[in-house]
């Protein structure tokens, strides 16, 4: 047996380079290299194609640190990642506690997944319509006698909370799917033994489900960070593009989009836009490394 395994490996080594090369070359030259070019642009002042890019050192980064608008957008992104993530995984855990033995679980599970296959633009357009001051949500609240709960949902005070809620509502199904697929792989007799020993659902979760899905959690958390840092379309769809989205609602990606296009009335600042892109990448990298330390799992390859 050992010899034949060695033989397979030797054979496979011969196809290693030709199988890998197309993907590796495309990725290197069309993905990594352009990303590096972006780093260079982040050190320039550049108002778009047709104008010249001037090297201006760290000015874009310094301006970012003193610009309260960008700092708010950056903080919003962090809040979205941390608070939104807390909600997403809290809901996911709660679901994991009960879903194993729930009636109609496969139906519920596949339904929860649906929002994350839908265009955020479509969801934002439809839900935003419901949240208008005289929109459906406030009407329903008034009709059932909860007039005191009606709010200006899309106003500066609440809009970001609404956006977080929407992101949580959209994303949770994805993480439920990931985690539940691992839960499914846990042998049923473990739970049976636990039940016989008198463990309730929370204990079963604490001592069986959680430890056995740690690796999936680690992957899920990393995917969440990567996705949440990029949050963009849902904000645009909620706020529309007639005005600039209110500062309270902007994420770093929205701020970058405004820098690329110049906003509603303005000049593009591609240098700043590139710098924001670099900062977003650094934020992702730091959070991913921190998460991996925190969750310490060998299963994730990041």
């Amino acid at each position: 047996m050992a010899r034949s395994v060695g033989g397979v490996r030797g054979e496979r080594d011969r196809i290693y380079v030709p199988y890998l090369l197309p993907a590796l070359l495309i990725y290197t030259f069309l993905f990594i290299a352009p990303a590096a070019v972006t780093i260079w642009y982040s050190f320039t002042k550049w108002q778009g194609l047709g104008t010249t890019a001037h090297y201006n050192g760290l000015a874009n980064y310094r301006a970012m640190l003193s610009n309260s608008v960008f700092l708010t957008a950056f903080r919003n992104t962090l809040i979205l990642v941390v608070v939104g993530g807390a909600f997403v995984f809290a809901l996911t855990f709660l679901t994991m506690v009960v879903m194993r033995e729930m009636r109609g679980r496969s139906f519920v599970r596949s339904m929860l997944f649906v929002p994350c296959i839908l265009s955020p633009i479509a969801i934002g357009t439809a839900v935003g319509f419901l949240l208008n001051p005289d929109g459906a949500l406030n009407q329903v609240l008034s009709d059932v006698g909860l007039h005191s709960l009606t709010r200006g949902w899309l106003g500066p005070d609440l809009i970001f909370k609404c956006i977080i809620a929407a992101v949580v509502w959209i994303s949770t199904g994805f993480y439920v799917a990931i985690m539940m697929s691992r839960v499914d792989a846990i042998p049923e007799d473990l739970y049976e033994t636990a039940r016989l020993a008198g463990a309730n659902r929370l204990e079963q979760f604490r001592y069986i489900t959680f430890p056995l899905t740690r690796d999936a959690l680690s992957t899920g958390a990393v995917l969440w960070v990567i996705g949440a840092v990029k949050t963009f379309e849902i904000v645009i769809a909620f706020t529309g593009t007639a005005g600039n989205p209110p500062i309270q609602a902007r994420s770093a990606a929205v701020e970058q989009y405004l820098a690329v296009t110049g906003g509603v009335s303005g000049t593009p600042e591609l240098g700043s836009a590139a710098a924001i892109g670099v900062v977003m990448f650094l934020l992702t990298a730091v959070l991913v490394v921190a998460l991996r330390r925190l969750l310490r799992s060998e299963a994730v390859e990041l």
Binding site: L131, G152, I159, G243
Partner: peptide, 16 residues
């Protein structure tokens, strides 16, 4: 202004 005027889904207010 109309209630919750800061929270309109443009162009809701002008249509109202």
């Amino acid at each position: 202004f109309e209630p919750d005027y800061m929270a309109t889904k443009y162009p809701a207010a002008q249509n109202q």
